[in-house]
Nucleic acid binder design. Sequence first.
DNA 1: CCGCACGGAGAACAGTTGTTTACTGCATGG
DNA 2: CCATGCAGTAAACAACTGTTCTCCGTGCGG
Lengths: 208, 208
Amino acid sequence: MSHSLGVRQAQKQKTRQAFLDAALGLLAEQSLSSLGLREVTRAVGVAPTAFYRHFHSTADLGVALVEEALGSLHPMISGTVSTADDSDQRIDRAVALIARHVREHPAHIRFIARERNGGVQKVRAAIAEQMDRFADEVRAELAKQAESDGWSDDDLLMLAGLYVDQMLMTASAFLEADPDDPAEEDRVARVARRRMRLISIGRRHWLG
Amino acid sequence: MSHSLGVRQAQKQKTRQAFLDAALGLLAEQSLSSLGLREVTRAVGVAPTAFYRHFHSTADLGVALVEEALGSLHPMISGTVSTADDSDQRIDRAVALIARHVREHPAHIRFIARERNGGVQKVRAAIAEQMDRFADEVRAELAKQAESDGWSDDDLLMLAGLYVDQMLMTASAFLEADPDDPAEEDRVARVARRRMRLISIGRRHWLG
DNA sequence: CCGCACGGAGAACAGTTGTTTACTGCATGG
DNA sequence: CCATGCAGTAAACAACTGTTCTCCGTGCGG
C-alpha cells in the first residue's frame, strides 16, 4: 500500500498543510471571516497567488480545517461512550480525555467553538454536519446499553445531542482556563463532571 | 426625572443608536472582528471620523451591543424561573418565551451566540460576565424552591449554569430554523423541552 | 527523452482600511 | 448675548486587500 505519492503531490500536500497550520495559528486571535488570504500566505512564506492552487477561498480553507479538527475524533468519542465502566468512572474518564485533548490541540478546539456560530455559512454547515454525526454515533452506542431499554430512538438522539453539546462546552471551558493555573482547570473539570452526572441521573429516571 | 436631555445629547444618543442598529445589521453575515469602522459609518450615512465621537473602536461598539442585547433580559430570565407552575408547564413556557424572543430579536441572539466564542477578547469577557450574572440570578431563584432543600450553593450554581447554557443553545437552534417552516421550529422546541425535562429529572434525583 | 501540466513567483489592478489633522456650525451655560 | 464645547465634515495618509495575468522551473507520463 503505497506511500507512493510522487515528489510532486507530496510537496503540494506539505504546502497545503502549511496553509492549514498557519491559518490555525492566525485564528487564535480572530475569526475566519476576518482572515485575509494574503495574511495566510505571508505567514506561510509564499506568494499570495499560491493560495489559489489549494483553496478557492478562505471559506474553503475553513471547511478543510473543520475536517482536520473533527474528522479524526469520531473513534475517540464513540469509544469513550462505549466503555463498560461504571457510570461515574466513565464520566471521569470522558472529562479527563477532553482536558487532555484540549491541552494537545487547543487551536483546533478554539476554531470549532468559534466558528460553530461564526460568520461563514459553509463552515457553520460543515461543523453542524460533523456534530450531527457525533450525536448519531453516540446514539448508536447508547442504544447498545441496557439502560436504554424502552427508549425511543428519538429520545436517545436527544440525549446524545445533549452529551455532545456538553462535551464541546466543556472543551471550550477548558480553553478559557488559564493554563498556568491548574486549580482553575480542576474547577472546570469538577463542574463538567457534575453536569454530566446530573444528566446521567436524569437519563436513569427518564422513563416512567 | 427629566426627559430633559437637551437637543444636543438627544441627537448624540440617536446617532449612537444608529451605529448600534447598523452594526447589528451588518453582523448578520460576518463576525465582529471583521467589521470595519468605515463599513459601519457608511451604513449609518455619516463621516468615518464621526465614529470616534461615540466609540474608541469596533470592539467598544461590540461591548455596547452586548449590553443592549443582554442587559434588559435579566428580569425576564429570573422571572421565568421563579413562576410557581408545575415543572413541565414551566419548561413549556420557558421554551415558548425563548422562541418568541428569538423571533423578535434575532440579530441580538445571533450576535451573542457568535461572539460568545468570537475573536474579540473584550466582547467575550462582557458576554461571559452577563452569562455569569444570569447563572447567579437563576441560582438565587432555584434556592427559593422546595426542591432545592439539601443542595449546596455550589451544586445549585452548577445546575443554574446548565440551564442558562441550555437556554442560549436553544435560542441559537431557533435561529438556525427556517422561519418559513414552522414544523422545523416545532422540532427544535420539542427537543429543547425534552432536554430541559431530562435535566429537571436529574435535578429531582440528584441527592441520595 | 521530450513536452506538457502544474506549483509557485512577481507585478500590477482598483478598492478598501484605520487614523490624523484642520475645519465648520450650532446648542448650551454663564 | 456671546464665547466655548462638541457633534459631525472633509481631505489626505500609507498600508492593506482579493484577483488577474504573465511568467518560470521542473516532476512526470507518454
